[in-house]
Design a protein around this nucleic acid. Sequence first.
DNA 1: GTCAATGCAAACGCTTTGCACCTTG
DNA 2: CAAGGTGCAAAGCGTTTGCATTGAC
Lengths: 143, 143
Amino acid sequence: MSHRFLNQKLKEKGLKITRQRKDIFNLLNSNKKKHMSAEEIQNEIVKKESNLGIATIYRTLQHFVDSGIAIKHDFDDGKSRYELKVDDSSHNHHHLICQKCGSIIEVNLDLMEELENQIEKNFDFEIKNHTVKVYGICKNCKR
Amino acid sequence: MSHRFLNQKLKEKGLKITRQRKDIFNLLNSNKKKHMSAEEIQNEIVKKESNLGIATIYRTLQHFVDSGIAIKHDFDDGKSRYELKVDDSSHNHHHLICQKCGSIIEVNLDLMEELENQIEKNFDFEIKNHTVKVYGICKNCKR
DNA sequence: GTCAATGCAAACGCTTTGCACCTTG
DNA sequence: CAAGGTGCAAAGCGTTTGCATTGAC
């Protein structure tokens, strides 16, 4: 995903393109599988690039979520985690959360069509998005 | 669900049966569809029963979750919400979250078997539980 | 040059913890 | 009566906000 994408999305919303926003975007872009917290983002950027206030990070991430650039996740560890949205479909991947080691495994199956159809039909509910979290014990921890 | 159930679950974990724990259980039991926050629980019990410290509520709810009596939910409004677990199956109901009015609609469909089978097979992951949140616009708000 | 964005520190809100006192079994 | 539970207040911690300064367009 190029920074052309970022520029376009920001312009659509009338937002300015700043060094800080590019840094955050680039970091998320090179850590696609990591679900980074605001604090982790700050640590990485301060280490590798330059200073970056935590308030700016929260404000930027909120903009990214509003603009459909990023997704905010809650994995029950007390802090929000963010990742870039890979495409514009409403079908996000799912996450397996290991209750022993805490690792997050991505699942690219969807298999939610039947459930979504039933929901739209039975509840007259217009689905925009969904999140699926599956808790259990991962391969490694089972041994 | 009777308080016999509560007593049994508490004893299994070596926990004492106190007025506060009974009050919280009874309140959740008579508000099965409400997903109450700690603060709401406190308000209701202080109004109807007697004094109850917020720290006791958090400690009790944690015990309830650990004992399989209750489920902790996060509906992205900044506070955790709790409801009694209806049975011992790992198949909880799903929740529809209206992005306009914030209302929570319960869905008693499951339809996750196919996805769970694929996950257990492809990822060698032992599933204990899952949560599904579907975001969108509810019937009323669509008008 | 104008208006939004940033950084800092303070404020916020939910949740947890320390500790003296109280209650259950 | 011993061990765990409670209530209060303080502390914790992630997140948000106010405000003066800086930077994008």
